[in-house]
Write a protein that binds this DNA or RNA. Structure first.
Lengths: 344, 344
DNA sequence: CTTCTGGTTGGTATCGTTAACAGCTCGTCG
DNA sequence: CGACGAGCTGTTAACGATACCAACCAGAAG
């Protein structure tokens, strides 16, 4: 009964305007070489029928084969850091007339492959990825077939691509050094799996800072593989019950920080990786290692579009700055602090 | 120099396996009616060449014309509420073998139209929208041409589509009633533009609660069109400097709540629309009107896929529950409170 | 031995668009 | 006055896949 009026094609517009489809194509794409009068007639027909070009057919036929679509694969868009990355990516893409397909790996390598296969089946021009733990070599075939790839936030082992990251190692080494300078010697570390590039780096930074201060690392103060605030809360509670509990704790990212903060006793120093909205409003205000997800994503998107438009220079690694923002929680003095045990 | 090895086509696989492209098509799509031996030979050729079906060409030819792609248009994915919506949408889509194209309107009706035009040009099967302020009638043409549409979080005036929302009016009326019950009579309201459906409803709920208590609404305590935490901080500071300042404040969403909380003096009661990660950890803990963005988006996505797969029943409006979670900030007594001015 | 049936397989047209080229209509110049 | 070029428009053949139908082959039935 309800006949659905299918969308008009170029040939319908051509019939309406009394020209050939080629002329319609030229007008629709704003090409030169159409008489103004003809162009106006075609434009009127387009408006009258409500014609809209079918980009699927267009992409199939065009020589450049560009879909004007890129894929963004993150762990989880609900994560505030990744949400900021997605937002910034969409913004740059929009400015360049592109759209963003989004996919979540949810830390699952199998799902990661599925999502990327779905991206390439739709012939995206490029991919922006935060790779999950493990080997990314399977992306090489997509790469050799012309799909441009940029990694953001995390590097991809085994894959030679543009990468935009921060100096996770240096940032954590600095932060742990900061705690040590405030008199702490027993410092807890809470992170996700070491196999995730960022967390591997952050843990290395933690160890390096302890080593530089001549402190023996105690594995009892370290927890890996934490995925949620609840995980982090349980983990920090556990390490605080140890015979020699830590006097300071570092949370490896924002989500873990929320969980830690909920159960951390006053008096234990605390630094979080990633700045977050209410960090300054908590009691005490939270000292953080701030990075700028918008800048990371913007840089990655610009790199990607440069590649899509023909940049064939060797892959680059862009390292963006971090900033240690002391707000109070990271400056709570430890047992070796001069303010607690003055020497003079 | 670097000849890029273009991806193999079905005809390459067909040549490799010594069959016709039709047979390859049947094997690739898992259709019945291919001899097991032939299928195995084709499968081997597919693996050898690394063949992947081109969904762009496929979509052009198929009778159902489905792209297995939906579009999600939100104000801003960086907003935590919208990020949760996006994440849940992606999850449902993934389970159904679909992908999600994402677009941000950034509260700009012009950009909203651009994004939606880009969606339909790519022939998405359906759209999930949080409409910006203003009229959405322009979507009717897309709708009559077969694009399924579902609104989430906000209704779309002038458009007859499935809609998944919460009872914003009732939730705010209840929350303001809660403040009145705690002795407040001068209550501030901070929201975004009234033309945005949710904020219109929330403001109506505010007025209704005052009216029910016989309190005259004072326009000096109301601010609309606030878009950021900074906007909200300025606005609340301004209304607190009024001759008769409010003793309680309601923030219309999470982002505004952050800004209000940063500058709100202790002693002023406070309720926020939307629950947020650290609400319970602030001092005092923040009383909120909680809604569940994951449930909203999940419901919207299920509705959309039902439509895409042929459900032609009349458009539905799904209203999901909210919950007033008293945590402290909303229970600070006002001047008329029995605890401050006991009557016995 | 011929015809029929059912399971396989292949040929051809087509989806909506653009690339490449052909052809037409002028006005202009030698 | 005829040839030529510039400007405009149309024709044809793809892009990579699927829909539809025809053709083939073996074994069974008559």
């Amino acid at each position: 009964m309800t006949s659905r009026p299918s969308r008009p094609r170029m040939k319908d517009v051509a019939a309406e305007a009394g020209v050939s489809v080629m002329t319609v194509s030229r007008v629709v794409n704003g090409e030169a070489g159409v008489a103004p009068l003809t162009a106006a007639r075609v434009a009127a027909a387009v408006r009258k029928l409500g014609y809209q070009r079918d980009d699927v057919a267009r992409q199939l036929r065009r020589t450049d084969r560009l879909s004007q679509t890129i894929g963004l694969m993150v762990d989880n868009v609900a994560d505030p850091f990744m949400a900021a990355v997605a937002s910034a990516t969409e913004d740059i893409a929009h400015r360049r007339g592109n759209m963003v397909l989004i996919g979540s790996s949810r830390a699952d390598p199998h799902r990661e492959r599925e999502v990327i296969a779905a991206f390439t089946a739709r012939r995206v021009d490029g991919l922006i990825l935060t790779p999950v733990a493990g080997d990314q070599r399977f992306l090489r075939s997509a790469q050799t077939r012309g799909t441009k790839i940029v990694c953001v936030d995390r590097a991809a082992p085994g894959l030679d691509v543009d990468t935009v990251v921060v100096d996770n190692f240096g940032a954590v080494r600095q932060a742990v050094g900061h705690l040590i300078a405030h008199g702490h010697r027993r410092i807890g570390y809470l992170g996700d799996k070491r196999q995730i590039w960022t967390f591997g780096e952050r843990h290395r930074g933690y160890l390096a800072a302890l080593d530089a201060a001549g402190i023996d690392a105690d594995p009892a103060l370290v927890r890996h593989g934490l995925r949620s605030g609840a995980d982090a809360a349980r983990a920090v509670t556990a390490i605080l019950c140890a015979p020699e509990p830590p006097t300071a704790v570092l949370a490896g990212n924002e989500v873990l920080a929320f969980g830690v903060r909920a159960v951390l006793p006053a008096g234990v120093a605390f630094i979080a990786f990633d700045d977050f909205a209410l960090a300054a409003q908590l009691t005490p205000p939270v000292t953080v290692i701030a990075q700028d997800p918008v800048a990371l994503a913007t840089s990655a998107a610009h790199l990607l579009f440069a590649r899509i438009h023909g940049d064939t220079s060797p892959p680059r690694r862009v390292v963006m700055p971090t900033e240690l923002i002391p707000r109070g929680s990271g400056e709570i003095p430890g047992p070796g602090s001069p303010t607690r045990t003055p020497r003079r």
